[in-house]
Each structure stands twice: as C-alpha cells, then as structure tokens.
C-alpha cells in the first residue's frame, strides 16, 4: 500500500511465494541509511516509479536528522525490510491544533496480509503520542480504494477538512 507517494498499482494481495513465514518476528525501528535501497525498491514496485533522489533527500530530513516530531520507520522480518511509514507532527497548520500526519506508508506486495501495515501505523502513532499529540491524519487519493480501506480498517474516519486544488495557468 502507499498513500501520498503515489497510487498503489500493485495487484491485490494474494498468496505470495515471497511472503514472510507466518509467525515471523516483526521488528519496527527507525529507518537507517542501509534501508534506503529496500525502501526505494518497495516504493518503485508499488507505485511504478523509481524516485531514488527523492528518497535520499527525504531520508536526510526524516531519517538522518530525526527529531521527536519527524518519524521514518521500517518494518523488518528476518533481517529484510518489508515496509515503511513516514510522518511528522505539524503545529497549527491549516488552522489545526498540533497533530500527527502520516504522509507515506507502504508494504511490499508480497508481504501483505500479515499485519505489517497495522504494525507500522501503530508504531508511528506511538511516536506521535510520545511527541505529545492525540490526533493522527493522512491524505489519500479517493480512487485509491486499497489504502482508503486500510486506514478505515484502522478506525480512521473523514477529518473535518476538505482538500482543494486548482490547475495553475501557465
């Protein structure tokens, strides 16, 4: 799954030969530089676009110079990165009291249906709580049914905000 990093083009989860074995221990931890290749590969598999420079730059801001308000986490089974989540606490933006924003979450298609997305979201929510906020938000394309359903299954509901946009004339 993936949210604001692009729509999920991967097939629906199904039995997969590379799926981590049932009961494999899942570790969620802060992302490290050595995880970037796996993160880039997962994102490319899910979105169909490889964004190497983007992820390195993002890691500089959210991984290498991590603060209590910026979180970049990975989920690992048997030493392999299977998914990641990234987000931050934003204060008073859009007229909103400080809250945690999840702006990227993704799990390798072959590793889905094992609760990794739930673990990642739970881990980042723990981080947000530790940072002192009590609300978490995200933004999902409305045609991204898979990710919308995932967040719904985690108890998330429509926020009292409306996203607006317009095309900029040249």
């Amino acid at each position: 799954m993936s949210n604001s990093r692009g729509n999920d083009r991967s097939p629906r989860p199904a039995a997969h030969p590379e799926r981590p074995p049932d009961g494999a221990a899942v570790i969620t931890r802060p992302a490290q530089a050595g995880d970037l290749d796996a993160i880039i590969a997962i994102d490319a598999e899910v979105t169909g676009i490889e964004k190497t420079d983007y992820w390195y730059e993002l890691f500089q801001r959210y991984g290498a110079s991590r603060t209590r308000q910026r979180l970049f986490l990975v989920a690992e089974t048997e030493g392999a990165v299977q998914g990641f989540v990234i987000g931050e606490v934003r204060d008073w933006e859009f007229g909103s009291a400080p809250c945690g924003w999840v702006f990227g979450i993704s799990v390798r298609p072959g590793a889905r249906l094992a609760g990794l997305g739930t673990r990642l979201l739970g881990a980042i929510c723990d981080g947000f709580r530790y940072a002192g906020v009590s609300q978490v938000r995200t933004l999902v394309a409305r045609d991204n049914a898979l990710v919308l359903s995932f967040f719904r299954s985690q108890g998330m509901m429509a926020a009292p905000v409306i996203t607006l946009e317009k095309a900029l004339e040249p």
């Binding site: 409305r142 045609d143 049914a145 919308l148 359903s149 967040f151 719904r152 299954s153 429509a158």
Partner: peptide, 15 residues
C-alpha cells in the same frame, strides 16, 4: 457524488 462513492467504497461490512 465522487466523495460519497469513495467513502462507501472504502468501508467494508467488517469495518
């Protein structure tokens, strides 16, 4: 309508 469809389409009976 599009927002309503996206909302209904994202909520399963189980949820």
């Amino acid at each position: 309508d599009e927002i309503a469809k996206a909302t209904f389409g994202s909520i399963t009976l189980d949820v």
